[in-house]
């Protein structure tokens, strides 16, 4: 004879395990569509067809940022890299405050036949490291800057808050 509450405990546990398992399977199955952006490596491996909108995310590569002004609008060209591959990006418009060399970005746009990624929107992705500016400066001065913190402070980081 099994007590009703013990039966309810077993039934509920079985139900939750089943539901959890089903959700886990669904998440694994849909994993690619849950990914907010593609990395340059993924783009290099299977590039989405030209003209198809997707998101490209990575780091702004040093020495690749070029700005050209045509009339009122400013066009910025830069390479987005993940250390293994790089995709050239062309963007016309205002960049977010945090944009800079070595900074993470997520760009929304499409690859065009010219081989460049034409972005309609550029968002800045920042790291999960937080420290005061003087600490960051002294870490950099001591040569102990870890690139995973983000771009090192200093005048070379384009657009770093002054």
């Amino acid at each position: 004879m099994i007590k009703p509450k013990t039966r309810r405990l077993y039934m509920l546990s079985a139900l939750l395990l089943g539901f959890g398992g089903a959700t886990a399977l669904a998440l694994v199955g849909f994993s690619s569509s849950l990914t907010y952006f593609l990395s340059p490596r993924q783009v290099a491996a299977h590039a989405p067809p030209a003209g198809e909108t997707f998101r490209l995310g990575g780091i702004v590569e040093a020495g690749t940022v070029q700005t050209t002004q045509t009339g009122e609008s400013l066009t910025t060209r830069f390479d987005v890299t993940d250390g293994q591959a790089a995709v050239p990006v062309i963007y016309t418009g205002i960049l977010p405050d945090l944009f800079g060399v070595g900074q993470g970005v997520v760009t929304i746009g499409a690859l065009e036949p010219d081989g460049a990624f034409h972005a309609e929107e550029v968002l800045a992705k920042h790291g999960s490291t937080y420290m005061p500016r003087d600490v960051a400066q002294s870490l950099k001065d001591a040569g102990k800057w870890n690139p995973k913190f983000g771009p090192a402070p200093g005048p070379d980081a384009l657009g770093s808050p002054s």
Partner: peptide, 8 residues
Amino acid sequence: MIEHLNPW
């Protein structure tokens, strides 16, 4: 062209 927003 970088947007300088006042965060306050």
